[in-house]
Simulated assay, not measured.
Amino acid sequence: MTQTPHGSPPVPARPPRTAQLRLLLRLTLLSLGVNVADTVVQALTGPLTLLPGMEDVLRVPWIPGGGPAAVLALYGVVLTTALYALVWFPLREQMQWGWILGLVFCCLAVLGDVVDLAVLLLGGDVLPALSTAALVAVNVLWLVVAGRPGVRAALR
């Protein structure tokens, strides 16, 4: 291995960013947006069952309505955004571990959302079921695109 003029080892060249990787990055952001929308729809339309006394604990005066569903939705959106960031930033830098983490998170999300979709359909909740179905569709598309050879070729 040759040394650079400053005595440090050379930095390996990054593979070119492929069209499939750019599509995967866009799908990651789309999935985040659909996930946030699904959370809002379910918070506004879905029933919320809490243990007795928990409503007072989860009431926040600065949230409109201050209801527990709004507080839990806000916490869910913050946590979800952090998990998407754990995937999106490494993918943007073309790091393979971000792709692997994305596959794991996406598979778990699809499994959980399919169960959620079945429960919503059995309960007759049409609007939350539609938003969850959209989320499942985007995440399945993410998995399909993530498996393309052009994505793996762009990772180091």
Rank of each mutant, 00 (worst) to 15 (best):
A13L: 10
A13Y: 02
R14N: 03
R14S: 14
P15T: 12
P15A: 07
P16Q: 06
P16V: 04
T18M: 02
T18N: 05
A19K: 12
Q20L: 08
L21H: 05
L21K: 01
L21Q: 03
R22M: 04
R22D: 14
R22H: 09
L23T: 15
L25F: 03
L25P: 05
L25W: 02
L25T: 10
R26C: 05
R26Y: 12
R26Q: 13
R26K: 12
L27T: 00
L27G: 02
L27H: 03
L29K: 03
L29Q: 08
L30Y: 03
L30N: 03
L30A: 12
S31W: 00
S31L: 01
L32G: 03
L32H: 05
L32K: 05
G33M: 07
G33Q: 06
V34P: 01
V34I: 15
N35T: 15
A37C: 08
D38V: 06
T39R: 02
T39H: 08
V41Y: 08
V41D: 10
Q42K: 14
Q42D: 06
Q42W: 10
Q42N: 15
A43V: 14
A43C: 12
L44F: 10
G46C: 11
G46D: 08
P47E: 14
P47A: 15
L48E: 03
L48N: 01
T49H: 10
L50R: 09
L50G: 06
L51D: 03
L51C: 00
L51Y: 08
P52I: 01
P52C: 01
G53D: 15
G53S: 13
G53V: 07
G53L: 13
G53W: 07
M54R: 12
M54Q: 13
E55V: 01
D56P: 01
V57C: 03
V57N: 06
L58D: 00
L58N: 09
L58I: 09
L58R: 04
R59P: 02
V60S: 00
V60Y: 08
P61W: 09
P61Q: 06
W62H: 03
W62N: 00
I63K: 00
I63Q: 02
P64F: 05
P64G: 05
G65V: 10
G65W: 06
G65N: 13
G66A: 10
G66K: 05
G66D: 11
G67P: 00
P68E: 01
A70Q: 13
A70F: 00
A70S: 11
A70R: 13
L72M: 09
L72C: 08
L72H: 00
A73L: 02
Y75F: 15
